[in-house]
Design a protein around this nucleic acid. Structure first.
Lengths: 332, 332
DNA sequence: TGATCCAGTGACAACGTTATCAGCGTCGTG
DNA sequence: CACGACGCTGATAACGTTGTCACTGGATCA
């Protein structure tokens, strides 16, 4: 900037005015500065600029995901990126891999970079370590799952309703032994989906059979193994309700491997690419991932810009039941 | 920092020393500073720190992708993120959606934020606008596709070899009319894959039939439509070679809709989730996406840290032929 | 005993930018 | 003609931090 000023024969303040498009600069000087800048290949230093500027906004937000390679997370990132782009804001993202400690470290790293806000798909751990930041005014929004130990904005799907509807469908076509396969129930999403399962059982007058409920499944491989175990057990279920996308896929693999995919009904939570090209097509509770992301971003920016204050809001995004043939297989 | 210094009764320089874990601070002062910092909730300002520090590295790199929601891109991001994490570097990413202009704008935005380097999955346009940055020492690495109008490090799959091998397989089992469906050939990746197709035809003594070669297909929907068109034409092909993941999926849909999926052979470039659960299982040329990403990151950091200089390197990552049943359907 | 050294500490300038305010000339107005 | 208003410009300080260097006091050595 100093060099540009020297070359153009003006003060650095005038250069600053030109690059920021402030009014009150004569056209003559403006063109002189612009030519000088172009000649020297001058590029404004955004870092220094935000340091000096009164508003300490970096136009950058941080996003912590389970794992970007998971299609759900990738779709979420895309939605948030789109919302951010509209406001000329950049997104830094990182994968947590369900590791509490890494989540904390990454949050700190993002905050040290002065992000304007944080969107987090939280682990099952405690999040009180963020309380101070929230108090200080850095907006933090949780997506997909509710955090523990802190009050903050949260956006998630209608997990209870969604899974209850799926279960109601299975019950309506006659299933009486429906297995539940899901995540660690310390994760709010998983416990909500389990709650929906439970509610539907109760409403349908069905017994709760502990041997049909499997939790703490956190990968496709494990899902495949436990589903095989279930199907090979003495009294196997006639239908499966899988509470997460990778678990559903694991279940599909298990059913295939035992050649039961046309006999045992399957309903999954969260749609996935090609679910409609499998045989049978897989019935799912579809989440509106784009809306989840957009809503989270809106909450964040609303808080950041002071349009909203006070305690955390908890928004639930409706799901949609997509009944495909795997959900219509009758009990055998 | 000033407040912490005041509370601890030391100079700000000492606070700086403590937070940076520099030696030569007595334990007594260190604990005093740390307590003061904790009490005030002090958090170092990374922005100011990098501004002042001699090495102007921000420990942040920029990644420009086609679209994070595309599984290929998401996997790439994950690989790069992992490589960056090892070096305590953050990744800012953004989706270009094949828009030249947006690519340029996003590059500028990243550079203004002083990223230490840029990894780009480039559009078909010209990239000479980055030459000045490269000259100035900001490493830029291109992945998946070669850029136009600039010499820089590039990492991509063995596209020619990969597609030639797939074609050789189809030819070996007797196919004589094999269609090619691919992207815009201004994209190096697409033209390389077309070249492999062409080479295999020539090597197999087969004629080049323009009506069997369709390019400029850029979405799943379009792929489905053009493949239907091909299959319904007067002299349809007996096998399809689809040069990109979404195109392959579009082709699967087209084959299904015409109930030809057990009659027409299919080979795709780039594997995708569930390809092995479809009926028939889809044969593909698998790319080592993780290695693509890791290699790109390594090239970038090597340049940044001065371990490598000079003209751009062009690295090709081998592909692997995965012959599944769709690739073994004989000609009818 | 005096010179030397070293660990520990702080004052100050600087990174690249923008906010503030003062200065300058020109113009219109009473 | 005096005066204020206004449009344009620049000098300077400041943002939060770290590099540089100088200082202090006590330990070590010949």
């Amino acid at each position: 900037m100093r060099d540009v000023a020297k070359l153009a024969g003006v003060s650095i303040k005038t250069v600053s005015r030109v690059v920021n498009d402030e009014p009150a600069v004569s056209d003559a000087l403006k063109t002189k500065v612009l030519t000088a800048a172009a000649q020297l290949g001058y590029r404004p230093n955004f870092t220094a600029s935000t340091l000096r500027r009164s508003s300490t906004t970096t136009r950058t937000i941080g996003l912590l995901l389970k794992n970007v390679a998971n299609p759900f997370c990738a779709a979420l990132l895309r939605a948030i990126e789109d919302a951010a782009r509209q406001r000329d804001v950049m997104v830094i993202s990182a994968s947590i891999d369900e590791d509490d400690d890494r989540e904390r470290r990454l949050s700190q790293a993002f905050l040290a970079r002065n992000v304007d806000g944080l969107i987090i798909v939280p682990t099952a751990g405690n999040h009180s370590y963020l309380a101070r930041e929230v108090d200080r005014g850095t907006p933090v929004v949780f997506v997909d799952r509710a955090p523990a130990g802190i009050d903050a904005d949260t956006v998630s799907s209608e997990n209870v309703v969604g899974s209850r509807q799926a279960m109601e469908h299975l019950i309506a076509i006659g299933h009486r032994r429906i297995a539940y396969i899901g995540n660690d129930t310390r994760i709010s999403t998983a416990s909500d989906r389990l709650l929906g399962y439970r509610e539907a059982l109760a409403a349908g007058g069905l017994a709760w059979s502990p041997e049909l409920v499997i939790t703490d499944v956190y990968s496709e491989d494990i899902a495949e193994r436990v589903v095989r175990g279930l199907l090979l057990s003495r009294r196997p279920p006639t239908a499966l309700f899988t509470a997460q996308n990778l678990i559903t896929i694991g279940a599909v693999r298990a059913l295939r491997s035992l050649d039961l995919h046309h006999k045992i009904a399957l309903f999954g939570f969260d749609d996935f690419l090609l679910s409609d090209l499998l045989d049978p097509q897989v019935a799912v509770v579809e989440q509106d991932i784009y809306r989840l992301g957009q809503t989270a971003a809106t909450l964040l920016f609303d808080r950041q810009e002071g349009r909203r204050t006070g305690p955390g809001e908890h928004i639930r995004i409706p799901t949609r039941l997509i009944v495909r043939s795997s959900g219509d297989l009758p009990p055998t």
